[in-house]
Design a protein around this nucleic acid. Structure first.
Lengths: 178, 178
DNA sequence: ATCGAATACTTCGACTTCGAAATAATAGCA
DNA sequence: TGCTATTATTTCGAAGTCGAAGTATTCGAT
């Protein structure tokens, strides 16, 4: 009985093993080790979180793109209304795609369209009560997952991590066009 | 001269301002502040990096998805060949999408398809020399951008940041199905 | 006041992705 | 060996996204 090439073995690497293999490959190809550890970890985390969000948003019948619109509107509904173009820019999508996305969201009464009285070329988008409720529900659900992810860190470590990341965020504005 | 409703003002918020506004909105909606600071920063960084990658990859005529395939193959070409399904899983895409993606990549001689001699149901994908060269070129380009992003941190801080993130990565395997 | 350029959104055609059904080959069991 | 269940990939139709062209409104110069 020879073992006949164990091709069917596929143990599904753990997130940690995936991470290590990725870093190794990037370093082997000429990347700096410390840089690759940080960047690969950031991507791995973001990606994993995105997968979880997608599952939770599906419960609320929202796509990631729709969530992005809700989220962007939620953080500036009172003071300033946003136009479709601004939403497209903010959520990294083409203006034409935003038109359709807003169509669907208006159909479901999550947002409302109104032409700007001061400039009738413009359309102003606002969150409806329904939209607000959906936003808050999503945040509360997500916060639970996110708290779990940060579970292994103490309060002090979280503070430390947040500070380091915020330094990088601040630095993003330095050299905008790379 | 009245100021007549400054609607046309759109100063394009800095990455830092965007970050702060997002955190504020999530906290207002019921999220934990420290958690939201970390998570929002991770997402913001990943998103910004993705934008830069997209620009660089465009130079090499690669989509983000094609890069994902190249990258996954590059880190395990010697020991194990991968099937389309495994690549689909690894890059978070439907198997049917992978079929088309591999079609295009094979057309450009970045990858090669070969039926597994041990199980003719399977197709094994490998990187061609051209594929390898493209992978390495992309890594070297990306590493420059990434180094810039980490510029504001000292070596010691980078090490600290990497360690904290790696704790979180390790924790992802604990509670897989949320 | 009016013409032309600029701005903002939408419509259109092409392409990518998805999920489900179809196709092909293997593995296990009688 | 022959039959059935399983595994793996591809094909197909529906939906989302993109860039470009189209439409409507405003702004500025004459």
């Amino acid at each position: 009985m020879t073992t006949r090439k164990s091709v069917s073995k596929r143990p599904t690497l753990s997130a940690q093993d995936e991470y290590r293999a990725d870093v190794a490959a990037y370093v082997a190809a000429g990347g700096d080790e410390l840089v690759q550890r940080v960047i690969t970890a950031v991507h791995g985390l973001a990606h994993k979180l995105d997968q979880w969000y997608a599952r939770q948003l599906a419960d609320l019948d929202l796509s990631a793109g729709e969530w992005a619109v809700l989220s962007r509107l939620a953080r500036s509904n009172e003071d300033e209304a946003l136009t479709p173009s601004q939403l497209a820019e903010a959520t990294s999508v083409a203006p034409s795609s935003m038109t359709h996305r807003l169509d669907r969201m208006a159909e479901r009464d999550l947002i409302a369209r109104a032409t700007d009285p001061d400039n009738r070329t413009r359309v102003l988008i606002t969150l409806t009560d329904e939209g607000w409720a959906t936003f808050k529900a999503a945040v509360r659900e997500s916060d639970m997952v996110e708290s779990d992810v940060l579970g292994p860190l103490s309060s002090r470590q979280r503070e430390n991590l947040a500070s380091l990341l915020e330094v990088l965020i601040a630095g993003l504005d330095e050299a905008p066009q790379v």
